[in-house]
Design a protein around this nucleic acid. Structure first.
Lengths: 347, 347
DNA sequence: GTTAGCACTCCAATACGATGAGTGCTAACA
DNA sequence: TGTTAGCACTCATCGTATTGGAGTGCTAAC
């Protein structure tokens, strides 16, 4: 069977009204509220076809129809596109520029959650490809050293190092110099064995401790920081009864609170990366995260620097307002872009 | 009317079984499971008295009794004390020492939440009374400066400063020296105007920019950081139906997610600070937070350094296992103490 | 190909009675 | 005077019927 124009129109109408009301939509509703002048009986026949084709289904006989995942997918891919502009306009969301990246990210999730009424998440950017601006060692006391690193995008990381034996003040100054001359401008993943050997040779004049110290610091630099994830508006999901009973929704919220499976989501997103503006839509069973099989997830990837990326995601019921969500994401992305590019310029 | 021994015993029995079962407890239950050999009729009379005195109430006629807030209060103050030891023993919770305070705090909330099955929260310590270990200025580029501060307890804070005009490298070195000689060992709130004047006089040889810079940095130091609050296990609260329907529980979780009112809670705790081990119990309407009127909250105050305190809180239903919660808190507190004291020794 | 009509299904709401836990009260008892 | 047995009464809860209505599928006519 084929999906002709009339069927498409009907499918669209069904999905639209279902998005609005959240209740199974019947043939009479469609026959009344669409421009195609057809009786409910005809609609019924068409619906029967659509069901056979797998776009819609009935929760039970004598109920209206509900879109299947396949139906939503068709909607998102083919029907949704038109008239996004107007939605964008009314978004009065402004991300304020502040000096700590963390703050910006928190602002963003919060805005998205409150604007959409769904749950949202954002990851801090993956720093492995980020470049080191400088590193600064300071002695805390004779047995401890504080290493502060600044990366592009003004991301600051620090790490407290324990020394086996005291290191002189001058030595620290020298080390500072050494590290900065060798490592400045390199991305974290570019710092490799060879470099390390060179550095050690250069530092050979110093004692064994120093060589050890180099090891420790490099280790600290490369330390896989389990990427920070911020969430917001998770409790919004309680508003959608179709996500299950208390028990189930609880599980879902728990997963979000504990950030369970969100890294899988990120990985998947990174992999799927392409398509329109890098915005991905996962519907129901398409979700990479088990606990969100009844949700839809819309993700986008932002870029802080060349290759330094993070992921934004919005989690809601399958009948979420995809159009609004996508347009919200677009707005936010462009704002983030503006902020980061401006950062770049200033630098 | 007076609360004689028999009434006390009965009240205790009622509360104990209610904590267990969560269901209204009737006279027959009490008459069977207590050592006082009394018929249910007698118990009924006593219960009637207890109700009149406001310790218990009936959700409806022909239902068993439930403790009122006053009843819980009496229980917590007078009846709970005995046999806490055994509970402590079985807590195999170990807080691991890591170098970032943030990590420790996150561990702690998590442990508490998973051990108790309630929600838990912890605040980072108030830093105003904390002393400055050292401050380190580094030039990022000619228009930006990174100020890194380390406080007692190895808390690291940083702030990016924008300069109006470039500052020379040597000047930064001098400023570093200046700041450290003047401010080292002072608590953040001790850094005042007078000191500032002295510093400026000392720096008078430098240009106006430097004087401005001093202002900016001091400002940054004193900047009221809205204390970070970590929560965990908030979704546990969904397990307790008595906390209300979806709507209500949603509100509660929302408040926790947004950290709404938690600062009031902290303020109140700080104020009430004293009593046994600094552990406070707020039952139902006693709660300083409106959204938690149907919960009980148990709080404790930990100390990182002399005067540098933070608050831990556990939020659960009124029929929470107070004994377990208190003992859990005690265990955690002693562990935190050990960690912080050890820190102190090492230093 | 479209539509009107009708029988049929099934959820949701409502009402109803039975059940049982629990109370309060009274009268008898020690 | 305190305790207890007994009994009538209350009320939430649960299962069962009943009903109404929304919606479908099918058939026959247009």
């Amino acid at each position: 069977m084929e999906l002709d124009e009339r069927k498409t129109k009907i499918l669209n109408a069904i999905i639209q009204t279902y998005l609005d009301t959240g209740e199974p939509v019947g043939s009479r509703t469609i026959s009344k509220f669409t421009d195609l002048k057809l009786s409910s009986a005809t609609i019924r026949n068409e619906m029967s076809d659509l069901e056979e084709m797998g776009y819609i289904f009935q929760p039970h006989t004598s109920a209206g129809r509900i879109p299947t995942d396949k139906g939503y997918r068709f909607y998102v891919d083919n029907l949704m596109a038109a008239k996004t502009e107007e939605v964008v306009r009314e978004n009065e969301m402004m991300v304020q520029k502040v000096d700590k990246l963390e703050q910006i990210l928190k602002q963003v999730v919060r805005l998205l959650a409150s604007n959409t009424n769904y749950a949202s998440m954002i990851t801090a950017p993956q720093n492995r490809k980020n470049k080191l601006k400088f590193i600064q060692l300071s002695s805390v006391d004779e047995k401890q050293l504080l290493a502060v690193m600044m990366l592009e995008g003004n991301i600051v990381k620090h790490k407290l190092l324990n020394l086996d034996e005291p290191v002189e003040r001058e030595e620290i100054v020298k080390l500072n110099l050494l590290f900065n001359t060798y490592l400045q401008g390199l991305s974290l993943q570019e710092i490799n064995m060879e470099l390390l050997q060179n550095m050690k040779r250069q530092a050979a004049e110093h004692r064994q401790v120093v060589s050890d110290l180099i090891d420790t610091i490099v280790e600290a630099i490369q330390e896989e920081d389990d990427t920070e994830i911020y969430t917001s508006g998770t409790t919004n999901l309680l508003k959608y009864p179709e996500l299950g009973d208390r028990e189930q929704t609880g599980q879902l919220l728990y997963a979000l609170e504990e950030k369970q499976g969100l890294s899988e989501l990120i990985a998947k997103t990174a992999q799927d990366e392409e398509g329109k503006q890098g915005i991905q839509v996962y519907i129901g069973s398409e979700s990479p995260v088990q606990s969100m099989k009844d949700c839809s997830i819309v993700t986008a990837t932002y870029e802080l620097e060349e290759g330094v990326q993070g992921t934004i995601g919005i989690i809601g019921p399958k009948r979420m307002d995809y159009r609004k969500v996508v347009s919200n994401l677009e707005t936010v992305m462009s704002q983030l872009d503006a902020i980061f590019k401006k950062d770049k310029e200033e630098t």
